[in-house]
Design a protein around this nucleic acid. Structure first.
Lengths: 100, 100
DNA sequence: GAAAGCACTTTGCGAGGCAAAGAGTAGAGA
DNA sequence: TCTCTACTCTTTGCCTCGCAAAGTGCTTTC
């Protein structure tokens, strides 16, 4: 088709494998902790930490730290903005692929 | 959901906005020339050229140069390998998103 | 009371994306 | 004919970004 493809509709923050996986996981489960995400996505801890920080800085996820016994646990959950961005991303992606 | 998300199923060659746009466009139209892609995707020529080279090096597209009158025209088309990779990418993406 | 484990964060470097500059050719005007 | 502009890409150089290795702070084990 001769359709113009709107690449800028694909949010750069989400269009990254690890971050896409994080958002997808959080959208599905509502919330997850660090170790769950690390295992589910199969990424290194440093890598994951960096991407979670990016998502937090963009207001796409919230971070809550609490103590379970004596151990810290950090839980991540999508914000309304994050959910909206994820859905917009998926829509843009489908629009790109649908014409094929 | 607690599903493991297979991020490595997302082909790095295709998981890039410009290259995804190129493959999507070529899959839809069968073939396109340089200027069409440049306009359709709204990217700079240098940027596009680089990504087309990457796709060619991975055997995802073929490049054929011909003269139309006295002007060169370069036409790009997906290879069977490229089509397969694109479809696998889309499937992996859908699998990632479907569980949401 | 060192040493090892847990839960992340920060750092440093290498790969990758982007636009600006370049290269090669053709036609138009002086 | 000799520049000048136009066209179609390619190459270069910078600069961002992603990644894993190293680091931090606390807790538990030996």
């Amino acid at each position: 088709m001769a359709a113009v493809r709107r690449l800028d509709a694909l949010d750069d923050v989400i269009h990254q494998k690890v971050r896409l996986g994080v958002m997808s996981s959080l959208m599905a489960s509502g919330e997850s902790d660090f170790n769950f995400l690390k295992a589910a996505l199969g990424v290194s801890d440093g890598n994951l930490s960096t991407h979670l920080t990016v998502l937090e800085e963009h207001g796409y996820i919230t971070v809550s730290k609490e103590f379970v016994g004596k151990k810290p646990r950090t839980t991540y959950a999508p914000t309304p903005l994050g959910r909206q961005a994820f859905e917009a991303y998926v829509e843009a992606l489908e629009a790109l692929v649908r014409s094929v």
